[in-house]
């Protein structure tokens, strides 16, 4: 399969169309939704860049934390949730909070990089 244009280029083109052509012609509710749409595409662009490495790191941390291997970060997260729910892990568990913090910082770097809580976490 080719990638010319790449997914990134296509999304950038659509985002530029919304920002420069469509949004300026819209008013009221539609203009608001155009801004939200443009922001959603910006999220996808950040995700394309950040997710592969961040998720691989997350998976490695989860395997170390749980002492097991898994097919995906998703499956390991379900296991982690079960362990927390069952009371086998809590705030006093070595490495749990730092892992969750690293994962959430990566997630926010995709979702809402300007969020104030992200700055507080970095301090």
């Amino acid at each position: 399969m080719h990638d010319a244009p790449s997914a990134k280029e296509l999304i950038e083109a659509v985002k530029a169309f919304i920002d420069k052509t469509a949004a300026p012609q819209l008013t009221g509710h539609a203009a608001f939704h155009a801004r939200v749409a443009s922001n959603a595409l910006a999220t996808v662009l950040r995700e394309l860049e950040i997710r592969p490495a961040a998720e691989a790191e997350e998976k490695a941390r989860l395997e170390a934390l749980l002492g097991t291997t898994g097919d995906s970060a998703n499956a390991l997260n379900a296991q982690l949730c079960e362990a927390i729910r069952a009371g086998q892990m809590d705030l006093s568990t070595e490495g749990l909070l730092p892992h969750l913090k690293s994962t959430t910082i990566a997630q926010l770097s995709v979702d809402q990089p300007g969020y104030s809580g992200l700055r507080s976490a970095a301090r």
Partner: peptide
């Protein structure tokens, strides 16, 4: 994609 705000 705002749930992560509450998580941090």
């Amino acid at each position: 994609r705002r749930v992560s705000e509450n998580e941090i």
